[in-house]
């Protein structure tokens, strides 16, 4: 994807330069030509390592993988890999992944928004706010294996909170059907980073709600509830939906926490892919590539939604 764009640029530069010489009367073209001719090659050489790295270590492996998804084991072009993905195991994994990502994203966004509103608007102490923001900056980057074991110590069979609930209310949450190595266990664990991410993204948006709007609404007769219903929440809405998409993608691609917590017990796409890479459990290398492509498509879609909505939110809050 990078390659054609780069050649395009150098081609058009030549063309434009030639045009510029043959038709000096056309001002815009000559201007552009001289602008391009002024391109210092030293600067381009300076950025070359970055682009080479991106090309070789990011784009090429991804593109090669995507290409593999369209090739059968003999090397012929095919769409058969996608048809072969239609097994209960794979479709089940996608369904479970989407459910897990949706659940942790929705809960994370709702609770995170509540927390951000509470801290940013309700409590109104700058100290509390600063502590919460610092904490969220840290916690949003705390995930993976250590997080999984921290939750085992908390809500595992022998976890502190599990024991505390039993002692206090006489309820054994495991007997009641809870399991950390299950859908809801994973969801709760994911909230540990999903909520802080929401807070760090939503807090600037909440700060962007101007006092004037609330005052204008109130002088037009709106109660506090009516303000939030018609103005506050609708303004936060694009940011919130964008956050939702980002959280979705974030948990869709995450594996370390889930793997450390459940091993292969929960059937989600990244764990299936992990198993496939380690041991070719699908018995077809290119089936793995197709699986990866499916994952890329879901994540690209979610991220595209996030970016579009973020642009919209920024336009409003300028």
């Amino acid at each position: 994807m990078r390659m054609p764009r780069r050649t395009e640029v150098s081609l058009s530069e030549k063309e434009v330069a030639e045009l510029g010489i043959s038709k000096p009367s056309e001002l815009p073209i000559t201007q552009r030509a001289s602008a391009l001719r002024r391109l210092d090659w030293s600067a381009l050489i300076g950025v070359a390592p970055f682009f080479i790295f991106a090309l070789v270590m990011m784009v090429a492996p991804t593109v090669a993988l995507i290409a593999n998804a369209f090739v059968d084991q003999q090397g012929h072009l095919t769409f058969g890999n996608f048809a072969d993905l239609n097994t209960p195991e794979v479709t089940g994994a996608f369904a479970e992944s989407i459910r897990l990502s949706a659940a942790s994203a929705v809960l994370g966004a709702v609770i995170g928004l509540g927390l951000a509103l509470n801290v940013g608007r309700g409590i109104g102490s700058t100290q509390v706010r600063s502590i919460v923001m610092t904490f969220c900056g840290v916690a949003s980057n705390f995930s993976g294996v250590p997080l999984a074991f921290a939750f085992v110590a908390t809500l595992g069979r022998l976890g502190l909170v599990t024991a505390a609930i039993k002692a206090a209310f006489g309820i054994d949450i495991y007997a009641a059907g809870f399991d950390l190595a299950s859908f809801w266990g994973l969801t709760v664990t994911y909230l540990f980073f999903q909520i802080p991410i929401t807070v760090t993204i939503m807090m600037p948006a909440i700060d962007g709600l101007r006092r004037d709007w609330r005052e204008a609404a109130s002088i037009l007769g709106a109660s506090s509830w009516q303000y939030w219903r018609h103005i506050g929440l609708p303004i936060l809405w694009p940011s919130l939906l964008g956050t939702l998409a980002l959280l979705f993608a974030n948990s869709f691609g995450a594996i370390a926490t889930a793997y450390a917590l459940t091993g292969y017990a929960v059937n989600i796409v990244p764990i299936l892919l992990y198993a496939q890479i380690r041991g070719d459990v699908l018995h077809n290398e290119n089936l793995g590539a197709a699986l990866a492509l499916g994952m890329i498509i879901v994540m690209a879609f979610a991220n595209a939604i996030y970016l579009v909505l973020r642009t919209r939110a920024e336009r409003w809050l300028r």
Partner: peptide, 29 residues
Amino acid sequence: RPDQRNLGMVFQSYALFPNMSAAANVGFG
């Protein structure tokens, strides 16, 4: 409270609701 006083106010920063069209802004009250 402000919403009980039946006043109209124009702010320095306009304070138009960014999520509403001009018509919706005017019709809000």
